[in-house]
């Protein structure tokens, strides 16, 4: 009888330990998330080419003297090198190195159909340019009118392209106001 009682008591102790164990079972865990926020970029590059006999090469200045009546192949495109769709505009500046005044009616750039001239002197690209995309040609040639006189003889003429871009996203109403 004593043995049975002792056996029963020891069994109760074991059961009690199990019950306590399961009642007090408690776990926690913790871990870290490293959350990163990044921004994109708006960037463009001016690309210039020449065309001769259907072959396109990277533009280099003519290695021969230009005379009135000449037309030089100069194809200018804008490439979107950033990560955002962008509006593009560009200005063409023509200067003589020594400061001689240039009549823009005598040195003409053939403007592409995808660009619209504005009174502020800029040409605005008619489309939104996507990343890695090239625009339609801003110009494809420069013509020196036959009316050019000796005032430009032996002069070094620079044709500079100044292009600007701004994100098209969240920027519809007055996209170029950021440049004001």
């Amino acid at each position: 009888m004593k043995q049975k009682i002792l056996l029963g008591v020891s069994a109760l102790f074991v059961v009690g330990v199990m019950a306590i164990g399961s009642t007090l079972a408690y776990f926690t865990a913790s871990d870290q998330a490293d959350n990163v926020i990044t921004t994109g970029s708006v960037a463009i590059a001016v690309k210039e080419y020449s065309e001769k006999d259907g072959i396109y090469t990277e533009y280099t200045d003519p290695d021969y003297p230009i005379v009135p009546g000449d037309t030089v192949s100069k194809i200018v495109k804008i490439q979107n090198t950033g990560t955002a769709d962008a509006f593009i505009r560009a200005k063409i500046d023509i200067d003589a190195v020594d400061g001689t005044k240039i009549d823009r009616d005598q040195i003409l750039c053939s403007i592409g159909d995808d660009w619209t001239a504005s009174d502020d002197g800029y040409y605005y690209y008619n489309k939104i340019l996507s990343p890695d995309e090239y625009s339609g040609a801003l110009m494809d040639s420069v013509s020196f009118d036959t009316s050019i006189g000796n005032e430009l003889s032996q002069k070094e003429i620079h044709i500079n392209i100044n292009a600007q871009a701004i994100q098209s996203r969240n920027n519809v109403d007055n996209p170029w106001s950021a440049f004001d």
């Binding site: 408690y26 926690t28 865990a29 870290q32 998330a33 959350n35 990163v36 926020i37 921004t39």
Partner: peptide, 27 residues
């Protein structure tokens, strides 16, 4: 939900920032 200030300037192009969150669980 994350909102970007429309006045953020060019100096923050191609920039990154990190926010660490700690998750904890208990029964």
């Amino acid at each position: 939900i994350l909102g970007i200030d429309e006045k953020m300037g060019n100096e923050f192009q191609s920039t990154s920032g990190k926010i660490k969150w700690i998750f904890s669980a208990e029964q």
